[in-house]
Structure formats: structure tokens, C-alpha cells
Simulated scan of single mutants.
Amino acid sequence: MTDATRPTAPGVDPHRTTGDGRASCHHGEILQGYFHDGNRHLCHGLVTLPMDGPGSTARFVRRPGSPPDEVTVTPDSRTKARKAAVLALRECAALRGQDPCGGELTLTGDLPVGLGMGSSTSDVIATVRAVADSWGLRLRPETAARLAVRAEGASDPLMYGPRPLLFAQREGRVLEVLGSALPPAVVVGCALGGSEPVDTLSLTALVEDGDLAAYAHLRRMLRTAVADADTALLGRVSTASARLRQRVLGHREFLALKGIADSTGAVGVQIAHSGNVAGILFDPRAPGLDGGLRRCSRALAREGITPTRTFTTFASPDHLGVPPWTTTSLKPSAART
């Protein structure tokens, strides 16, 4: 076994030519800004809010003997996934000691594009996993992250699963493992900006005096929130980070969103720092949770903000009685095919 691979699953034929992969999405960021690594190198970093459910599924059929760059993708608009497939093919061929080849990639999923939920990274990671599976391999998260950054330019940390990480998205490396799980929270999701996609590559980061100290402070606060399972502190971090990011995004609904959180007993708000998806965070242990969720949904509707879905940061929300009335679909025009 090399540093790039994990053991092949029992019973997997190493000579197979068809592979499958899947990757989930996230719901925007809890924290995003500029942070120092262990060597005091300053880099972009983020902590995403995991969300189970929507995601991308990939199937890859290898064509041994075909040119290595001869990869087709359906839908043909998924150019980042195609690039990831070519990179993963070369990686896996080298691990197997064989010549790289081409193949056919098919992507399906239910993720909206451009709302800041990691749709392109989900495509890319699902693709990398499918290509590796077609070789009878499972690549390590570090390898998948390296390939994803090469394919996208910047990547979300979906390859590492739901645990909270401070991740350098432009370098594909983990700056800090914050813990095993975020504090428990119920999130009422919504879409700002009329659910319209955002061109993330067009966004320009603005850094002002005091920002680096502010981000370092929020990092320490989040570390404490995770260690103590402190949902209220989690809300304070995500709200402060969202407010800092408004210099770039300028959501006209941000003040209304914050007002709804304050008036319904929520602990804070979170937004996608490169998109329009947002959420209002509640502590599941607080009294009157169900009433707060209902008031929140009604208040969002009054403000013309589209509620999307209610979800949790932990595995099973059943004991909370999270009601189905808070779950709707995102704007059809933003949905993926």
C-alpha cells in the first residue's frame, strides 16, 4: 500500500474497468478567512457546514488502450470533473504500474449550481472515487484533495467527510482538525438573492486592518465551541464570519436574516461565503425548539426569503421532531441535471 491509496475493498477485482463514486455537499461555511499554518504561512482557509443528503454520483468506464486524455463526460458542461478524471486516471495508472487510458464519465445528482454548496467539488470527488474504483483502488483523502485543487483551482474539504476541519482550499491541505463533530445544531436553510447562482471566480476578497486578528480570534472561538459542544458559541462564530464576508457578497437580506435569528431564539446565522445559500442555527437542546422553527419559517416567507430545508449537524434528528413542513425544493432553475 502506498501513501496515495487505502486497501482495496474485500472482493474487489483489481482488473475491473467500471467504477462508481459518490460525494456529498455542504451548506456553505461556518468560518472563512485568512489563517496561519504551523509554519506561520498565511493562507486562505475555511470550515464548512456539512449536510447529508444531496450530492453527486459518478460512474466511470475505463477504455484500456485508448489515449489517456480521451475522456468524455455527460453532461458535457462538467469540464472540471473531466479534468479530474484525466488526473485521476494518470494517478491510478501509475499506482498500478500500467499505462493511463481514457474512458467515459457519467455524472448525476441533485445539487443546485452556484449557491455555494460545493457542487463542483462534489462532482470532482465523486469522479476521482469512480475512476479509482474502476482500477480497484481507493485513494486517500490527501491524494483526492491534491487532484481536486489541480482540477478546480480551489476545493472544499468534502473528501474528508463531515468532521470539522480548517482547510486551505487553494492548497488542498488541512490546517487544523478541530474535532470529531460540530456542536449539535438544527439549521433552517434558505436561499438569498432570489436563489440565483453566484460566479465564485468573479469574487474579490477584501482584507482590512484588523482582519487577521479577527480571524485568528474566531478560529480560537470555534476550536472551543467544538471542544465544549457549545452551539451558542458556534452561532457567534458563524455570524461574525458572515458579517465580515458581507464586504464581498453584500447580501441585501443579511440584516433581515440576522433579525429573524434574534427574534426566534436562534443562536446565529451562517452563509455560503461564495454563494447564496444561508442558514439560521438553533440549539436542539433549547426549550421551545419546534415553535422557534415554525416562527423562523414564517418570518423568512414574510421577508421574501425562500426556505429550503431543515437539517442537523448530527446523524439522527428523529428525536427532535423536526417537521417536514420546513423542507422544500430549491429553485428549479438552479437545480442540476
Rank of each mutant, 00 (worst) to 15 (best):
A229Y: 03
L234F: 11
S134R: 07
G103K: 03
P323M: 05
V277T: 13
P54W: 10
C92W: 06
G268F: 00
V174I: 01
R220N: 07
A88L: 13
V174E: 04
C43A: 10
L137G: 11
V71D: 10
M117W: 07
S24P: 02
A84E: 13
R78P: 06
Y34M: 10
L300M: 07
A88Y: 11
G179M: 10
L222D: 02
P157A: 01
S77A: 15
G118L: 03
A261N: 08
V61F: 05
T48C: 01
L147P: 15
L300N: 02
H15F: 08
V322F: 05
R247Q: 04
S122W: 04
A229E: 06
R96K: 11
R243G: 00
P162E: 10
D230P: 09
V188H: 07
D3P: 11
S122G: 08
L31K: 04
H273D: 12
A85I: 04
D13G: 13
L95W: 07
G161A: 13
V277Y: 07
S180G: 14
A205I: 12
G116A: 01
F35H: 05
D318Y: 03
T306C: 02
V207Q: 15
P307V: 00
V149P: 09
R16N: 15
R138D: 00
R223H: 02
S329V: 10
A9Y: 06
A240S: 04
V269W: 05
V186M: 00
V47T: 01
